[in-house]
């Protein structure tokens, strides 16, 4: 899937809004990182859900909580890039040891392996425990998604998904929005155990 299926892209966009996905369009991964940093900058620092948690690895100014970004799947150079971008804003950027941050982090940044347009689903192989955690304990999950990876629906992506599972990836996630519940009086409420928001940065490249 190297060519962009414009109809699928349009469908993905149309289906993203009803499930409260924040969509943005960017050129490539670098711009997606810029977007993630921007999102992190604008948000309130995360509310710790546990009394004790690991101290951030950058020193904080007194009284100012340090924001944390996690990007466990980035390649070495890309991670370095994000560290510099986040660091410039005073963020702690991590890619492992997420278990030490179960009280929460601000932004989890990942890149989707595939997307299914008709349900606005991003598919993420999560071989690493840290990837699973980063996408769950963050308050905002920012996912970069190349337009060329958007398939119209699951039927047409079935072979790819099958290959993924047979290739030894032990944990694959379909992510189609943020964590949600309607368990109290059927009132839709976002952000139960996982992210409060899901942002998808659609990449041209």
């Amino acid at each position: 899937m190297n060519k962009i299926d414009q109809a699928a892209v349009a469908l993905f966009k149309a289906k993203a809004a009803p499930v409260s996905i924040f969509l943005t369009e960017v050129k490539g991964l670098t711009e997606a990182m810029d977007y993630a940093v921007e999102v992190c900058e604008k948000k309130e620092p995360f509310r710790p859900l546990l009394a004790s948690s690991a101290a951030p690895d950058v020193p904080a100014a007194p009284g100012v909580p340090v924001k944390i970004m996690a990007a466990p799947e980035l390649s070495e150079p890309d991670f370095l890039k994000l560290t510099q971008k986040g660091g410039a804003k005073g963020f702690s950027v991590i890619r492992d040891g997420l278990r030490r941050h179960l009280a929460g982090i601000d932004v989890g940044f990942t890149e989707a392996d595939l997307a299914l347009a008709d349900t606005a689903t991003s598919v993420l192989a999560c071989q690493r425990e840290d990837t699973r955690l980063a996408t769950m304990i963050c308050e905002i999950h920012v996912m970069a998604l190349a337009k060329s990876k958007i398939a119209p629906d699951s039927a047409r992506a079935e072979n790819f998904l099958n290959e993924l599972m047979k290739s030894g990836v032990m944990y694959t996630a379909f992510i189609s929005g943020c964590s949600r519940t309607s368990d109290i009086e059927r009132v839709l409420t976002l952000g139960v155990h996982g992210p409060l928001e899901l942002h998808v940065a659609l990449m041209e490249e």
Partner: peptide, 27 residues
Amino acid sequence: IRVLPRNATGQVITSYVSWITGAGECT
């Protein structure tokens, strides 16, 4: 999955579907 969430809660799909194929990493 094309019918289950539609019939259950009027969603096209649930926010998460996890596919677990084996005993994965646990640090």
